[in-house]
Every structure is written in C-alpha cells, then in structure tokens.
Design a protein around this nucleic acid. Structure first.
Lengths: 275, 275
DNA sequence: CGGCACGTTGAGAAAATTCAACTCACGTGG
DNA sequence: CCACGTGAGTTGAATTTTCTCAACGTGCCG
C-alpha cells in the first residue's frame, strides 16, 4: 500500500517545471527527480551541465494490475521505471494480448507513441511501481539545449531498436528451449545489474505472459522449465527461480531429444520393429 | 552500370557541408540533396526553415550485392534510400543470416548503430541503389537548431520501433500463411506509395530471404505462394507477383486445411480404417 | 473452506521443417 | 550458338516441433 492512486492511467498532476525540491519531494508521498538523477537511473553518462538544470520530474505510484498507458491513448509522456515490474503489450485484432517486454528499474518506455502521437501499446504494472513521468516536450526541449542529452535520447531509442531486432531474430530462428533459456539469462543479467542476485529471483509474470513474450504457449514454457529443472540447469518452484548453470543456458540451442519428451532411446535405424 | 564505385562499403568522400549545388550535383555522376529534399523523401512535413539550410548530403551508388555497411563497422552515418532495393540483416553466432527488413525509396536505415557506435546489422543492395549519406553528427546538430526537425527524427525512430513491434507480434502469433499474406500486402502498400503499381510488381529478394524475414523456411514460403496462386489470391511466376484479392490477403488468418496440403477429405471419425 | 487463477503433465493433432528429387531460367565458355 | 553448370524455385514424403485439448495439482484470497 504505497500511496493513494487516483485511477487507471490518468495522473491528474502534470509533471513539469514547477516545484522546489525539499518541499514537493515529500508532498503527497510523491517524489520528484531532477535531470541528473534521471541520467543516472538510465545509466547515461551524466553530462556536466545536467546538474544545473532545475527541471523536476514527478513520480507516480501504480499498483499491480493498473495500466500506465493504454492503446490509443494520446501520447505526451515518456516513462522511466524507478522501482517495480511492468509489462508492455500489444492487443491484436482478435483481442489477443502480445507481450512486448518487461520493463524494470532503469528502463524507459512509452516511445512507441512519439510517431503517431498515440500509444500503440499498453503498459501495465505487474507489481507496485514507482514511475517517473517525463513530458516528451520538456525532454525534447532539454535535448535541444544540451547536445549530449539529445544524443543520449537518440541512443536510448537506438538501444531499444537493437533490442527488438534481437527479439525478432530470436523469434524467427530459435527453438522453444533456446528462447526460454535466453529469457532466463536476460532476466538474470538485468537483476544482477540492478544489484539483486542474478542467481536467485522471482518471476513477476505468469507462464502465459512469458509464452506470449517468447511466441510460445504457456504449456511449452512450463514443460521447458520442467525439463531445465530435471537436467539441473535451473531449480524452479512456481515463480522462484535459481540459475544453476548459466553457461549452459547461454549456449543452449536445443535439448537432447530424450530429455524434453521422455521417450525410449530410439534405434539409429528406425526400420523393422514395433510390429 | 550507374557509376564507378570505389569499393565495398567505404565511400571515400565524406558527405557534409561543402559543395555548391549546380556544379557538384553533376560531378562524378553523383547528386547532392538538401534538407528540404530529404524531408520530402522521408515524407516528413517539410518545415519552413528547412528550405534555408544550405547543408548538402551526398548520394552514393551501390550495385547489387554490395554492402552499404557491415556488422561491427563504426557508425557515423544514417542512410536514406533514394532508389533501389536493399535488405538489412543480422548474422547470428552460428553464421546464419536473419533478414530484418527490405528498405526501399524513402526509407531511413542505419539507426541501429547510434547506441553502441557500431553497426549491429548489415545492409546490402539487392539491386542497383542510390543512397543518400546523412552524417549523424550533422543531422543531430540540425535537430538542435530546428525543433521540428528534432521531433521528426525522434518520430522516424519511433516509427521504426512500432514497425518492429508489429513484426515481433506477427512472428509470435501468426501462421505461415498469414505471415506471407501480410508480407505481400505490405509490399503492395509500399510500391503503391512509391507511385508504382500495388497490384503487379517484382520481388527483389529470394524465397530464402523472404523466409528468413518471416521466420520460415524457403520451402514453406514457396508452398504458400503456390497455395495462394492456386486459390486465386495472387498470380505468381518466379519473382513476378500479381495481387488478385487484396482484401482476402489482408484478412487471411489460416488457409482451409484441404488447400495447402491436398489430402482427401478425412472422415470426422478417424477410427477404424487403414488396416 | 470453497472458488479460482495459475501451473503441471499427458496424449494426440497440426503445423512447419528437413531431406530429397526434380525443373527452370540464365549466363558462361567451348 | 548451344551445351552446361549453377543458383533459384517447386513439390513430395517423412519427421520433428509445437500446439491443442484435457485432466489434474496447488496455492491464495475472500
């Protein structure tokens, strides 16, 4: 119960250029961050002049299940995750959700809306979240003022582009096992970078959401987890994961045939038998 | 035989801020474009002050098979297609190519390199191409000068992001037939927008490249084309395509079972038979 | 203590791949 | 000028992978 929340996806106070820090930082249990803090959070090289900027960005809390933005909603903000876990997703014509990513601390999202001025995907909180609102116009204006910041914004978008390209490549060519393995390695990396254990962590999303993200069914995800568990690559119990053999997960391409589908070893010549 | 080309992916003349238009536009058979022309080519709203900019951007010609940039190559340019057809692709650890897109006239590419300062994918010409070189530093500086241009660059990157998200969603959830259908519809749209016929056109890429792009094997692509041909959605002969039923292609989810795989109608009860 | 969403597991079906043979178009060199 | 080699494309059959459907555990919230 972190804070009282207005409602679904429409924070009524607009982040921007008002506010003195000491006072407003505490008001309503909300926080405000300056440009320097944001650069650090995003792991951008905080450039010299950033410290001089007095612009403050508002934090807003969301509870699990709440949407930060929805499909079709007019775009005017970017969002930075200060804490908590989210998912971003597309809804296709048939009404099926397709998960695009799982933003967490330090991740920037909402950039899908820049082009059409409307969001083309939705973002929802998987846990309680603390999100920093970054009015796009404010950010663009700052970019025009500070060359390093402009480049940093381009860079952040480029990074997202590269990430999605890797995703496309993975979906296009890897087996289900390899996809699940890489998903775990990726989570492990991100938890480690956040200062948490990269070896033991809790999944914040359902098998369904993982499957949607990886282009697999929830059953295939579940079976693959079980198979990894059986051969000692991981230990998994519900949402609690322990990475046991990171290297194997990183390099895994395909499981030996007999593991995933427990079938008697097949003779190399499947010729005359089983009459 | 459009022009004499230096070599693979290393145009020796650096585009930038030199050059008087009338003279250099013809020198060496090369062309130079100003900011206004580029905005038009990219279908950006050409803003007022763009016309005043005297910066010129160099064109370079590539022949089919040549690479515009390679993986690992230091990034300093963006590229705009003035004419011709290309592919962009990732090479995975196993050495397999994974096609990411097929840039054509009006498309901007090379943005993958902004983040890491090195290109993470390669771009190769499928036909003879005329490419405009846009030094990234020059573009960023212009963005800082013109608010509308800065927004337009963000917008172009956002559009690419949304395009890739749609791709991820497609790879994650659509059948092979639906993917191929959408691929054809997408090509049709783009040809039409370029002023060519959206009904009849030539594929510039192999079945292998289409398959790689769609996350399918070349055989599946070929079979799907044949099936579409058989039921009259398209007419196809080698690389020549005629779109016969655009609406059906747009809405296709899955082919009726008997079409793709010509098998005798199976009894609803596959019980006692085939002794 | 239900009710219910989440997760696991199995068996059979469907989709797509693999392997293989064959055809076709095109360009090169004899 | 035509034979021939080669890369591209087509098609078939068998196999593999993944999905679908279904049943059953499990843990949590009201």
């Amino acid at each position: 119960m972190l804070a009282h929340l207005s409602d679904n996806a429409s924070p009524s106070i607009i982040a921007g250029t008002n506010a003195r820090v000491g006072f407003d930082a505490q008001r309503n249990g909300k926080l405000w961050s300056n440009l320097k803090e944001i650069c650090e959070l995003l792991q951008l090289p905080a450039f010299a002049s950033a410290a001089d900027e007095e612009v403050l960005f508002q934090h807003v809390q969301f509870k699990a299940g709440q949407r930060i933005h929805t499909i079709g909603q007019p775009f005017d903000m970017l969002y930075i995750v200060n804490s908590g876990f989210l998912k971003t997703a597309l809804i296709d014509e048939a009404g099926n959700e397709h998960v695009l990513g799982f933003p967490m601390r330090g991740d920037l999202f909402g950039m899908d809306g820049i082009h059409s001025k409307y969001h083309t995907c939705e973002a929802a909180a998987l846990t309680s979240c603390d999100i920093i609102l970054v009015p796009f116009k404010t950010l663009a204006a700052l970019g025009r003022k500070h060359a390093e910041l402009e480049i940093a914004i381009f860079s952040a978008m480029s990074r997202e582009l590269v990430r999605e390209q890797a995703m496309v490549s993975m979906l296009g060519s890897l087996s289900s096992e390899a996809r699940v393995a890489r998903f775990l390695v990726n989570l492990s990396d991100r938890f480690a970078r956040m200062g948490y254990s990269g070896k033991q962590f809790n999944l914040r999303m359902t098998r369904q959401e993982i499957g949607s993200y990886l282009g697999l069914t929830l059953e295939t995800v579940s079976r693959t987890f079980s198979a990894f568990n059986k051969i000692g690559l991981i230990a998994i119990d519900q949402r609690a994961v322990e990475i046991r053999d990171l290297h194997a997960l990183k390099t895994l391409r395909r499981l030996p045939p007999s593991i995933g589908r427990p079938k008697a070893a097949r003779p190399t010549q499947p010729s005359a038998e089983a009459a």
